[in-house]
Design a protein around this nucleic acid. Structure first.
Length: 530
RNA sequence: GGGCUCGUAGCUCAGUCAGGCAGAGCGUCUGGCUUUUAACCAGACGGCCUAGGGUUCAAAUCCCUACGAGCCCGCCA
């Protein structure tokens, strides 16, 4: 097999063939909790951007929050009082929680936090600010002048005739504040103003600067031109023939004399067995929810390893562990192909937290420490992991804790019992002898790591070993005929500590607990005879 | 009614851009081993690359058609 080129590098090569200077853009409307499909959009854009930079392009990456779009309806998560705000630009509506300066900011802030989390650092623009600063004024003039041409393009490509009163510019009414109830009556290119009438009965004049917004199908190409966008990913909803990319290409070329950006069409992310994520079916996972359980690198990996035009299936239960394992294995593998390495490299973007603690191991540590961060940190230190970045460990701990709570199957869970479990009464003589001998050795030994514990348990069946000899003495048995099944020994450990017959991999598990606690507990269990 | 994308091992998918012996991980099976909340090591099995046609010395790859799956579009991102 010849060397495989990662899709991001393929895109970068195609784009570079058109020129060296590039602007990768992505945009999302913060009308509600930002959807996971949008995560794919920004990760895709970020990766394309990084690939371009890696190839020596003079590239920039921007994110535009469409804060000037009107609120479409009172979403289920909104109070009924929001009915009065339907039709107003999101940036001009009060925040649902009262803690942000506007409605759009309420949803934008956590999303920007998520971007930071994922190591994605675009220059952020807010559409309302761009309009208010006048960035769109030239495009607005062109659109107003060439209204009929635009209408003709829309009609030709999308097949529907715009209404007589249709206009590419939607003024914001001074009176009711709405943007979707106004009709343009005239404009003045020198004064840079637009006259309108509103269905609320008001009429007036607004400045082109911040007085309204271009309709979506015109806004998009206007933005390409105004900002110089050359690469942009978008969901397949825009990719239909006659869809907004199609009309955007034509409007951009014919009205604004600007070549449309290189398209990257991406597919949706499907959730587990529930199928496509969609707000109408209620199958929705917010980015915040996703980041609660998935380390950011793994989420990037999930998206980066799959070509944009393919569905991604994401299952947050056990398959998540497989995904994390796969990532970690690839990450530390020395026989990864150049293709694998490239995927890891792109997943592990600059500014992203990375610890060397396996997710799976953390599920054990977390439960041993009952979620207490200070104790977790102690255990992690004792296990010899890198603890230089407490922040990274904190993130992993939060992911694991949330995963255990939200998605982990029961058989992945356990809890260390504060008191000796009563089920210890069932232990047989061999198990008791083992526990007391084990405890005695622990008392005398220094710190032990996972492998030490593992080896120590197995030494019980080796004739002549300290543990074997002690057990034989305790039972008054001949070491030569002593039958020791390690399985029973493990069971004794789990029963006395967890009150259940099985548990996490013993080495890791025991080394996560305090040695003195173990010695004490094993002694109690060995002597417990109700 | 139109359109977009996908179809490769039991599962999840690389490989298609740029044609050159059919690939990985997981699962399964076999052997080894110190059984651990999906142990580890070694190996094997596993494919009419959805179907049919075309181009070519050569097709999973390019072209046409059909079928299957998912989704989008009627100015509302």
């Amino acid at each position: 097999m010849a060397d495989i080129t990662h899709w991001a590098d393929v895109i970068a090569e195609e784009v570079l063939a058109k020129g060296r200077k590039h602007l990768v853009a992505t945009g999302i409307t913060p009308s509600g909790h930002i959807h996971i499909g949008n995560m794919r959009e920004v990760v895709t854009a970020d990766v394309a951007y990084r690939a371009l930079v890696d190839k020596g392009a003079d590239a920039e990456f921007i994110y535009i929050a469409d804060t000037y779009d009107p609120l479409r309806k009172v979403y289920p998560f909104l109070d009924e009082s929001y009915a009065q705000h339907v039709g107003k630009p999101l940036s001009e509506i009060p925040c649902p929680c009262g803690g942000h300066r506007s409605y759009s900011e309420h949803f934008l802030e956590p999303f920007l936090g998520a971007l930071e989390h994922l190591g994605i650092h675009p220059r952020v623009y807010r559409a309302d600010e761009l309009y208010k600063e006048g960035v769109y004024v030239d495009a607005i003039k062109q659109a107003l002048i060439k209204k009929d041409e635009i209408a003709a393009i829309l009609q030709k490509l999308s097949g529907k005739t715009p209404a007589d009163t249709w206009n590419p510019f939607n003024p914001i009414c001074d009176e009711c504040g709405k943007i979707n109830t106004t009709i343009v009556k005239g404009f003045d290119l020198d004064a840079e103003t637009v006259d309108y009438e509103c269905t609320c009965g008001n009429s007036g004049t607004v400045p082109m600067k911040g007085g309204g917004k271009l309709t979506w199908r015109v806004d998009w190409p206007a933005r390409w031109k105004a900002l110089g966008v050359t690469v942009e990913p978008y969901g397949k909803d825009h990719a239909s023939r006659g869809g907004s990319y199609d009309t955007g290409v034509a409007i951009s070329r014919e009205i604004f004399a600007y070549e449309a950006p290189h398209p990257i069409v991406y597919e949706w992310i499907m959730l587990g067995k529930q199928g496509a994520m969609s707000s109408s079916t209620g199958v929705v996972v917010s980015i915040a929810d996703m980041l609660k359980v998935v380390p950011p690198e793994v989420l990037r990996y999930l998206i980066i390893r799959t070509k944009p035009e393919k569905h991604i299936r994401f299952d947050p239960a056990l398959p998540l562990l497989t995904l994390v394992d796969e990532f970690e294995r690839l990450h530390s593998s020395d026989k990864a192909t150049s293709y694998d390495s490239r995927i890891i490299e792109l997943s592990h973007a600059a500014g992203l937290c990375h610890t060397d603690i396996p997710f799976k191991h953390m599920t054990t540590i977390y439960q041993v420490a009952a979620g207490d961060f200070a104790r977790i940190l102690d255990i992690v230190k004792r296990a010899g992991y890198d603890t230089s970045s407490e922040k990274c460990i904190r993130e992993l701990v939060d992911n694991v804790g949330n995963w255990l709570e939200m998605y982990a199957p029961d058989n992945a869970k356990f809890s260390v019992q504060d008191e000796l479990p009563v089920s210890s009464a069932q232990l047989n003589d061999l198990q008791r002898a083992f526990l007391s001998s084990f405890a005695a050795i622990l008392d005398r030994s220094g710190e032990m790591n996972g492998e030490d514990y593992h080896n120590l348990v197995y030494s019980a069946k080796e004739e002549g070993s300290e543990l074997n000899t002690t057990i034989a003495d305790a039972l008054n048995a001949d070491p030569a005929t002593l039958e020791v099944n390690p399985k029973e020994l493990f069971k004794a450990i789990y029963v006395s500590v967890l009150g259940q017959p099985s548990g996490p991999k013993a080495g890791w598990f025991l080394s996560s607990l305090e040695k003195d606690f173990l010695a004490q507990r094993f002694k109690e269990a060995a002597e417990y005879r109700p």
